[in-house]
Design a protein around this nucleic acid. Structure first.
Lengths: 197, 197
DNA sequence: CGATTTTTTGAATCATATCAACGTACGTGG
DNA sequence: CCACGTACGTTGATATGATTCAAAAAATCG
């Protein structure tokens, strides 16, 4: 009998690649279940991001801190999302981002060594990671376009449309910096919006 | 005796994955050499992007057109870069971008069918594409951060530093929209800069 | 509860966009 | 190979979306 956390990940994997039960179990066996407390960091600048993290429950925020002390949210992750500093993880370099838990969370962690082992063990595992990377690539591409081409108000409305479950769960300052605006301005947009309807 | 265009691609591939001569040649045999005239489109909205394109010589520009008619540059590609609408290519959906030649160019095209064939034929080919996707992912990630966190002037200076060969070869309006600003503003930044030194 | 963190509000300011006009370059047809 | 037309780049005046700063209000937490 599998723990529910592994159940989520199983579904996630099987949606992307067809595996036999044996293959699936071998893959799952390489993941480590970890509980993370709110405010705890799972990636920090200076240290290599040793794991790729699949979120079973809870919420995370990845951000960078610029020289002047401002922080900028790069990514959110809730259930069924992955998060890490990929630059650090892939290239075994010190991370440049923080990844912090916004809520008490449960994650499944895959180390770089285990990921390499899987990739070498079976064609299908490699396919899974390739598909993940390709989707992430396409996702960031779209995000880049939106940031480049749309004004702040659209970016906010758009985010509400697509990720309302995230919008309600994360602090406003984190969302503002994710959308590339100040918290004050987001607050004004939000007011304008509620008074309109 | 290999044509020089294939020579470039060989080097590119071998930098990323180790192949025997036979494996390399099989991979190369799946690419089609194509000459593209300046102003010619290799990807257009409405049509599926059938190829992943490796640039041997010349230069390309990928852009989207927003409702109001403005166009926004998403990517440049010169020698030794890849370009296509990945969303379209991976998901076999109509493209949303244009990709147009800025100069007379020579490219090597890999069709989706041939790419799939390669991925299935040999673990190592799949590894190559995975590495490509991972690098692209990390690249877009960094770009996203820069766009989100840095003012226009920095983005311009930064681009000059990192991609001076591109900056000199592409029209100014294309660069401006790539950097997320108007051509007028870029023109002013450029002036300010030259008068400063 | 009090203390800290987060969000809101308003006024002043700044970075960048817009518009319009002009100069320049370049490629195409005669 | 010149001349013309269209595309591209520059400049200045004005407008605006978004930031900054300061302070109050609201929410969260020990």
């Amino acid at each position: 009998m599998v723990q529910p956390e592994f159940e989520f990940l199983s579904n996630h994997i099987l949606k992307r690649v067809q595996l036999t039960e044996e293959e699936l179990n071998f893959m799952l066996s390489k993941f480590k279940l970890t509980k993370i407390k709110k405010r705890q960091f799972i990636v920090q600048p200076g240290f290599t991001a040793k794991y790729r993290n699949y979120v079973c429950s809870g919420a995370f925020r990845a951000y960078v801190v610029i020289d002047n002390g401002e922080d900028h949210t790069i990514q959110f992750a809730i259930e069924d999302w992955w998060i890490t500093d990929y630059n650090s993880f892939f290239n075994d370099q010190p991370a440049t981002m923080f990844v912090v838990a916004l809520e008490d969370s449960v994650i499944l962690q895959l180390s770089r060594e285990n990921e390499d082992l899987l990739k070498q063990a079976n064609h299908k595992y490699e396919t899974f990671f390739r598909i993940s990377a390709e989707r992430a690539q396409a996702f960031h591409f779209r995000q880049l376009i939106t940031n480049l081409t749309q004004p702040a108000e659209f970016r906010y409305e758009n985010f509400l449309d697509k990720y309302s479950q995230i919008a309600n769960r994360v602090p406003q300052y984190a969302l503002a910096s994710y959308l590339g605006m100040t918290t004050e301005y987001l607050s004004k947009l939000r007011n304008k919006r509620t008074s309109k309807q």
